[in-house]
Simulated scan of single mutants.
Amino acid sequence: MSSIMYAIIILFVSYYAYKRRSLTMSGAIAAFFVGIGIALGFGYKGLLILGAFFVSSSMLSKYKSITKQSMEKKTQKGSTRDWLQVMANGALAAIVGVIYFFTKESVWIMVFAILLAAANSDTWASEIGSLSKKRPLSVRTFKQADTGTSGAISILGTFAALAGSLVIAFVAMLLFPIQPWGIFLIFLFGFLGNVIDTLLGAFIQVEYKCPVCGQIVETKLKCHKTVVKIKGFTLFNNDMVNVLSGFFAVLGYLYFHW
């Protein structure tokens, strides 16, 4: 397939996602460039893996969205993804696509798959875990936390994280010449990315509190009054944590590989 055809297809899908309100306008533009980077290196196979992540995560985001309103209020982001969310989950994968285009070294196929497995694992954990009937447990305080709290885990969310990573591993196996051991590594390091995300969310991700109503949120957007930081570092918001979790998962794999 020619580069022009890839660009047309990616543009159409990005626009369609915008019209379906899965992406904001900025998110659609970011998705286009992420798709171009991935298509450049991995062709339609890379786009299919990206599609498996995007379609499943979008469907899960909209599933029982009313039930998830408390989580969306906390993050102050709904099921429509903006450019920061798109780049947090796809920018590194696009960069890896460009690297593979120039090097053709098979290790970058694994890195690409692990990045999307980590993103899928984290997304499934958040979207499905938020439906748990039991409140999650904070890994920092070992106490129950509100639904949607970064750094908190539930049994349902953990199983969802495992499933999310495993799905991407199997899709990668069907599309690329990856051995069974490689499938396990994609699954393992993809899930590890979710674990890292949880730890970073618990210990360094920023949280703010409204001094009026006591609502705890993850952005500086105003509630009833200017919010006050109560935990973490300003730079490390949810999007930054998503980037770092995938990055560290890949570093772990590269250390193991080399």
Rank of each mutant, 00 (worst) to 15 (best):
K133W: 09
G41Y: 07
M25S: 13
V111H: 06
R21E: 15
L185Y: 13
S26F: 15
Y253H: 07
F184W: 14
I109Q: 03
N89R: 03
L92G: 06
K133E: 15
F101M: 10
F233D: 09
K77D: 12
I114T: 09
I8N: 02
S57V: 10
V111P: 08
I153G: 01
S79M: 09
Q69K: 11
A249Q: 07
I10C: 05
L200N: 02
T24W: 12
L175T: 12
L162V: 13
I128F: 08
F170M: 07
K45C: 05
V195N: 01
T67A: 15
T24L: 07
S106N: 13
S154C: 07
G51Q: 06
L156D: 07
L185K: 10
K134W: 09
Y6E: 04
F32V: 11
L244I: 15
E207L: 03
I153M: 02
I204R: 03
A52K: 00
T80W: 06
R21D: 14
L11T: 15
G193N: 06
F53H: 04
L137F: 05
I66T: 15
Y208G: 07
S57G: 11
G41W: 08
V107I: 13
S2K: 15
G164I: 00
F112M: 04
V227Y: 02
K19S: 14
A117H: 00
S126C: 08
G129F: 12
H224V: 09
I95C: 08
A93S: 07
L156E: 14
R140D: 10
F191T: 10
F187R: 01
V86K: 03
G246F: 10
A145Q: 09
F102D: 13
T147M: 09
Q69F: 12
M173T: 04
K64N: 10
E207T: 01
C213N: 07
A88N: 05
I186T: 06
V111L: 03
I114Y: 07
Y100H: 03
F159E: 10
L199M: 10
D239Y: 09
A202N: 01
L92N: 05
G27I: 03
T147L: 07
I204W: 00
V96S: 03
F102L: 14
G193R: 02
S79K: 10
A249W: 12
Y16N: 12
N237D: 14
M240R: 06
A31M: 12
A28I: 08
E127P: 01
V167Q: 04
C213R: 00
T123N: 04
K64P: 01
K134C: 04
S245G: 06
F54W: 11
I8K: 00
M110S: 04
